[in-house]
């Protein structure tokens, strides 16, 4: 054993000012980066509003939200959002019918009825589905689904709310499945075993105990899927035909809010009225998705607290 002599006469406990300063600089930078998300989110809201102000002043928010037709380049110009909102809603409704049952059903099977290796494999499948760009889904819809819808329902055009909605439903599945599965997974095993010990079958355990316990997480998953469907742009732009008419059935062509912005922004005069109106559409879209996401976040946070012990 080497005994190093320790004469500590020279050592003191003062502050190294340079090190302190470096630490303070880093801390400031890190804090600034931390607050960036608030800044960007606020900036999005503010700039949408600023750019939409011309439209709000000249057309009026009331008119835009209640007028039933959209003729942005006609004479007279009519900027009614109702056909666009109705378009978005009809497409989203179709998507909802697809992703709610299939998404929740899949999440239940993956979480409750399948082995570990299958769960891992499904993670990759879902990862893949989430990674495929929306324009590719749109293109596949154009190539495959449009002709199918046209032939099956005997229509003159296969570009309908149904076509867009079906594809949107598939695109929203990864979100719904992964969040619902997380929620089911978070339910403690003790609850399952307690139920099984009472003589319940696995399915009875699932619908009496597990799903109710995970309901808020599943709800959040559905909300986030809904948010994704409403905000999706490329697939609906390519698949719905973009007729700005309030639809009476899902077999009609519709024009969504997102599709309208994407299709028309290329043709407007920057700073003009039409440009400003498109920002107003964006503002409405932002408001809707913000509300949906906020609701989902709050529900998710409550659930996280519930299982945290």
């Amino acid at each position: 054993m080497t005994v190093t002599p320790t004469t500590k006469a020279g050592r003191h406990l003062g502050r190294a000012t340079r090190r302190r300063a470096a630490e303070a600089v880093v801390r400031t930078l890190v804090y600034a980066a931390g607050l960036l998300s608030i800044v960007i989110l606020a900036a999005i809201a503010i700039f949408l509003f600023v750019e939409a102000r011309k439209a709000i002043n000249e057309v009026g928010l009331g008119t835009m939200l209640t007028a039933t037709s959209w003729f942005p380049t006609g004479t007279p110009k009519i900027f009614g959002f109702l056909p666009l909102i109705a378009g978005s809603l009809s497409v989203t409704a179709v998507a909802l019918v697809v992703f709610v049952p299939i998404g929740i059903g899949s999440a239940i099977f993956i979480s409750e009825f399948s082995a570990g290796w299958f769960k891992e494999a499904m993670k990759s499948v879902i990862e893949f589905m989430a990674a495929v760009p929306s324009v590719v889904y749109g293109f596949l819809g154009v190539a495959v689904l449009i002709p199918w819808v046209k032939a099956t329902f005997n229509l003159t055009s296969g570009m309908t709310a149904l076509t867009g909605g079906l594809v949107l439903g598939i695109m929203s599945l990864p979100t719904v499945i992964s969040i619902s599965e997380d929620a089911l997974h978070a339910v403690p095993d003790a609850l399952r075993q307690g139920s099984l010990a009472l003589g319940n079958t696995r399915w009875q355990t699932v619908y009496k105990v597990v799903v109710p316990s995970a309901s808020s997480g599943i709800f959040a998953g559905v909300m986030l899927g809904l948010g994704r469907a409403i905000g999706e742009t490329m697939a609906v732009l390519m698949l719905t035909g973009n007729a700005a008419i309030i639809p009476t059935s899902v077999l009609e062509s519709v024009r969504t809010m997102t599709g309208t912005i994407a299709a028309e922004m290329g043709e407007v005069v920057f700073g003009g009225l039409h440009y400003s109106v498109l920002f107003a559409v964006g503002l409405v879209l932002f408001g809707i998705t913000f509300a949906i996401n906020l609701a989902a976040d709050l529900v998710l946070e409550r659930q996280r607290k519930r299982w945290r012990r």
């Binding site: 406990l13 003062g14 502050r15």
Partner: peptide, 11 residues
């Protein structure tokens, strides 16, 4: 005051 915990911990 004036004692830096960072220095203290080296001792």
């Amino acid at each position: 005051k004036g004692v830096d915990p960072v220095d203290l911990r080296t001792r």
